[in-house]
Amino acid sequence: MHFIRSFGPAVPRVSLSEAFRAGVGALTGLGVSGVFLLSPEIDVNTGLYLVAPFGASAVLLFAVPNSPLAQPWSAIVGNTVAAVIGIALSIVIADPVLRIPLAVGLSIMAMILCRAVHPPAGAVAMTAAMSPEAVDHLGFWFALTPVATGTAMLVALAMVYARLTQRTYPFRQFEAAGQSGREDRKPVERLGLSEGELTELLERYRQAFNLGVEDLARLIGAAELQAASHGMGPMVAEDFMSRDLITVRPDTRLAEVADLFRNHRFKSLPVVGPDAKFLGVIFQIHLISEARNDALRLERGFLSAFKRLLDRHREKPIRAGDIMSVAGPRATTQTPIAAFISLMADGTVDAIPVLKSGQVVGIVTQTDIVAAMARQIVRTE
């Protein structure tokens, strides 16, 4: 039974939205490359044409952008080196039965030595070795155009697309500054392990091609948090959430929202429609960001822009529905505390609304998490 199961899927389930994001990214990347850089018609005289391995590169760049195999160095250098080897062998070896497998094998060796392993590069080497007519016309220029040029174009588009879809590509290096731009790393990545130790772990378990050091740090930190949460017992959101909520309507003016923040010292306010149906959340930072954007757009000072934002006599006032966040995480009354700890540990989420049948029935803040953990500690002592 275990042997049979080993032939099943090894990749965890992903959401439909993530599959859609990856597919649209590949479509956009190859489409834009074909329109603006590469001619979809094969033209061996110019070298500007699409080659089949670009499709495989698109899978890595847009579907698994965190993979070490998908990073810019791996993609551009790997494809280019493989093209050079395939071209060289096309020149010196006439027999395709020998030339093609030799091109792929030597390309793999070269990519590993260059620390630029990129699986589609094997197909690049094979393409070059199987296309002596292109080599006759272009020679080693084939490695520059279309291979290096096309791959660089895909990498550039993948970087733009990742930013637009709130992903990170290329992945952040281990020694890079944290999210705030300062030296401190995210709390879930403060492991007490050096980059060298993490790299040694990857090499020891032969996972260097599958995970980057940054990803390993994040996974270990998340696993530690998950394990620690097991000691909290079977606590769920309804056990510790804040229930006495103050909410606003989408048509509430920002001046009223600001008053609520000031009077109650809240950091977030749920936005609800009829029958307490949850619509979104407003955080204090939303007011600050809106004022900053207004100041830049109108070329005025920040305080002046903020005063204008909250002006009660403004002809067309900005309302809560205009700036609320609708894409943040949500929970149910039965969501375990472990899920909240994982989401809030890195400081990017301050509050999570708790919903029941589409209605907001509570909210969990960082303060609620700390209080729940403190109560649990007292009970176990």
Rank of each mutant, 00 (worst) to 15 (best):
T145C: 11
R115G: 08
V77T: 11
H118I: 13
A103G: 03
P119I: 12
A52F: 01
P119S: 12
T168A: 05
A121G: 13
G55E: 02
V84S: 01
F171W: 09
F62Q: 09
Y169N: 02
G55V: 04
G86A: 04
S57K: 01
E175A: 12
V124P: 01
D95N: 06
V59C: 06
A129T: 13
G178S: 03
I108G: 08
A103I: 02
A116S: 15
S107G: 10
G178N: 01
A123E: 15
L89K: 11
S74V: 06
Q166W: 14
L138N: 08
H118W: 15
A88G: 09
A162R: 11
A143P: 04
R115Y: 05
E133C: 07
L106H: 00
V135H: 00
A158I: 07
A123Q: 08
P68V: 06
A56S: 15
P120C: 05
V147S: 00
T80L: 00
F171P: 08
G105T: 13
P53V: 03
G78K: 10
G86S: 01
G86D: 05
A103P: 00
A143I: 05
M153E: 06
I87E: 03
A110S: 00
R172Y: 04
Q71C: 02
G178T: 05
A156I: 09
L102G: 05
M126Q: 14
A156D: 12
S107I: 12
G150S: 06
L164N: 01
F171Y: 11
V64Q: 13
T151S: 10
